[in-house]
Design a protein around this nucleic acid. Structure first.
Lengths: 170, 170
DNA sequence: GCTGTTTGGTTATCCTATAACATGGCGCCA
DNA sequence: TGGCGCCATGTTATAGGATAACCAAACAGC
């Protein structure tokens, strides 16, 4: 199993993406299986489209791409349903601040306490685990007598790859 | 000046909201003034609509409410422009995970390092400051060689007021 | 008065997401 | 082997969120 550690930074710009994709699909299969559900062709295509890169993509972008490749054009609801199932399975996450979705390349079970780093330049997304941060958030919530169900940490900025590229271009 | 501390928890359910509203409007005036801009009637109405409660409201909800009260119906773009100016002035924030807006009742200057607590039951929103959390996030970003520009922390859950109400109802 | 900026109106369009209802497939088991 | 129930998807329609492009009025400063 080549899977990455639960804390995964940004993939290097020129890396071989094949294994990343295969790994995601493998985990998707397993996850659906565990729940007695099926990774149908539709779901698989949607997943592959999203996991094509490390970027976060909109549902309609997925729709477009599938239409261009697959021939026939799906209804939005079909794409959303597929995405929903993938999100429920934990292999795709939603980037709330951009209404977009990205594949999870850092298997972390049911644990949703990841910091999401989103590059404003190339659109790439990475997840990192930082328990202390979520403990701090839990503490702050408790202090406000707030019963926390879920915490969302999304960080906007520029990834190392883009910074390097910028520097080189100047 | 009755203004709340920079870290403000949830307002108590039955509190007198008048001063909250006045305070927000006062700060809006000052903020627009500082920038050489104007808190016009339109902007003021939109602000008052948002600051009416401690809840996060959608742009179209604001639109509806203004139409019902003010008589004539604005174009969406007008509401969005007003909201944009209020967000830029720092008196209104955006709740990314719900595409909604709420008034800032916790003056914190240009500092955007607040944890946002959003009650799933009553819709109320509170901001709390927790420097350690944002330091932790900054550290994690740095470790991933990510140049962080802005961090977003939104927590979903149930506020104390709703928990109390629930308990009482049972 | 002229000029530039701010503000907001008008119209149109795009993107994001879901409701409601109908159909086909598949496993189960009696 | 017929019926039940759930999963998955199709079809159609609509709701909800946001912005582009263009134009006109209001106001500030010289």
């Amino acid at each position: 199993m080549p899977s990455m550690p639960a804390t995964a930074g940004f993939a290097s710009p020129g890396h071989d993406h094949g294994p990343c994709l295969d790994d995601v699909v493998e985990r998707a299969k397993a996850a659906f299986d565990r729940e007695g559900l099926r990774l149908t062709p539709l779901r698989r295509h949607v997943l592959e489209e999203i996991a094509q890169s490390h970027r976060a993509v909109g549902a309609y972008e997925v729709l477009e791409n599938l239409a261009r490749k697959g021939g026939r054009r799906l209804a939005p609801i079909s794409v959303y349903r597929a995405i929903d199932s993938l999100v429920a399975a934990g292999v795709v996450h939603r980037l709330e601040s951009r209404n977009a979705f990205f594949a999870c390349h850092a298997p972390h079970g049911g644990d949703r306490r990841q910091i999401i780093l989103a590059c404003e330049q190339c659109g790439a997304v990475a997840e990192v685990t930082e328990k202390a941060v979520f403990q701090g958030i839990a503490g702050a919530a408790k202090a406000a007598s707030f019963d926390m169900r879920r915490a969302l940490v999304e960080v906007m900025g520029v990834c190392g790859g883009c910074r390097t590229a910028e520097g080189a271009a100047t």
